[in-house]
């Protein structure tokens, strides 16, 4: 059996061994020529190539498109218009009244995204924290509940949107239950308030497992001794939470907060499937506006979409820098 296993192992490894032998000589020559520093470039090259093709080139193209006008798709067919697309997005007669803005839908999307982010992130952090605190306790079926809360994270956003549309639509599961309970059915997804609340609730449900996991890891990293020392010191539970748990969880909370903010600003797929941005434009968020401006509207304007995406990107860069700063600060203050 050992002989057969050995043979199988060799058969599987054979192509890799051949490849290694083939590149061995060129690599030796390269190393002799460039020194050991040059080898780093060789090993980084594949990743840099992928990063360049799928990130840097599209990013550059996006900047280029944002400087062009017209409805053409190919860059060569599009006239150069400078910063006109940015001007169009940001032009308003009265910034307190979005209808006076040239691209009022952009401002609607910005406003909706802002409100969404404030409520969704607050709810997300609160729910994730409470869930993590409960799952951190020695409760019966803890493993099962951890899986249950994490399960939605594994679902595709489109599936999440569809599930909840089936639940919330006019003849959906929720209304069926309400009718059976003798209550009046509601038009959940056709009411501005309910639809907006649904986007917040559904996105929180879909992503909270991920944030709960981060917070749970943070809670479990707090040494049990600290709680026992607090117990010996007759510390009331609320004070333990306020003075020990929260400060020691702060780095994880900061990461969760910023990641949730970034994700909140980027919200698109599940909301697009759930409400399509409606009713009207009440759940139109920034990413959907960009998508529609560039690809889905009758008068598609890739330049406008590119400019809007760059503005959104700027916000995300600020949030990412904030996250990096918080992570490094947390790293610096971590218990050694």
């Amino acid at each position: 059996m050992a002989g057969l296993g050995d043979l199988l192992g060799r058969a599987v490894l054979w192509p890799f061994v051949l490849l290694a032998r083939l590149i061995d000589l060129p690599l030796r020559v390269w190393q002799r020529w460039t020194g050991i520093g040059g080898m780093a470039a060789v090993f980084l090259a594949p990743t840099l190539l992928i990063f360049g093709v799928f990130v840097l080139v599209p990013l550059g193209l996006n900047f280029a498109y944002a400087m062009t006008g017209g409805t053409g798709i190919l860059l060569g067919e599009r006239p150069f218009v400078g910063f006109e697309q940015y001007g169009r997005l940001l032009e308003c007669e009265d910034y307190t009244r979005r209808l006076t803005c040239r691209e009022d839908q952009f401002w609607t999307a910005v406003g909706n995204t802002g409100v969404f982010v404030i409520f969704q992130v607050t709810l997300m952090v609160a729910v994730s924290l409470i869930t993590a605190l409960i799952l951190n306790r020695n409760i019966r079926g803890r493993g099962f509940f951890r899986a249950v809360f994490f399960f939605p994270v594994l679902l595709s956003p489109v599936v999440v949107g569809l599930i909840w549309r089936w639940i919330l639509q006019r003849q959906g599961l929720l209304n069926l239950i309400m009718v059976n309970l003798g209550l009046d059915p509601q038009v959940w997804l056709n009411d501005r308030f309910y639809a907006f609340a649904a986007t917040i609730g559904v996105s929180t449900w879909a992503h909270m497992g991920f944030y709960t996991l981060i917070l749970l890891a943070g809670l479990q990293a707090i040494p049990r001794d600290l709680y026992e020392a607090a117990e010996m010191d007759a510390t009331p539970p609320t004070r333990v939470f306020r003075r020990i748990t929260l400060p020691l969880l702060a780095p994880n909370l900061a990461v969760v907060l910023v990641l949730a903010l970034i994700r909140g600003v980027q919200i698109f797929d599940e909301v697009y499937v759930l409400t399509g941005g409606g009713p009207g434009t009440s759940t139109l968020f920034l990413t959907q506006y960009i998508y529609e401006a560039g690809f889905a509207s009758i008068l598609r304007n890739p330049g406008l979409a590119a400019a809007a995406s760059i503005l959104m990107g700027a916000v995300l860069v600020v949030l990412t820098l904030l996250q990096l700063w918080l992570s490094r600060r947390a790293e610096g203050g971590r218990v050694r």
Partner: peptide, 13 residues
């Protein structure tokens, strides 16, 4: 009673 822990259990923050 007061206890001194093996890990010291000092509040790091």
């Amino acid at each position: 009673l007061a206890m001194v822990f093996q890990s010291y259990a000092l509040y790091p923050h």
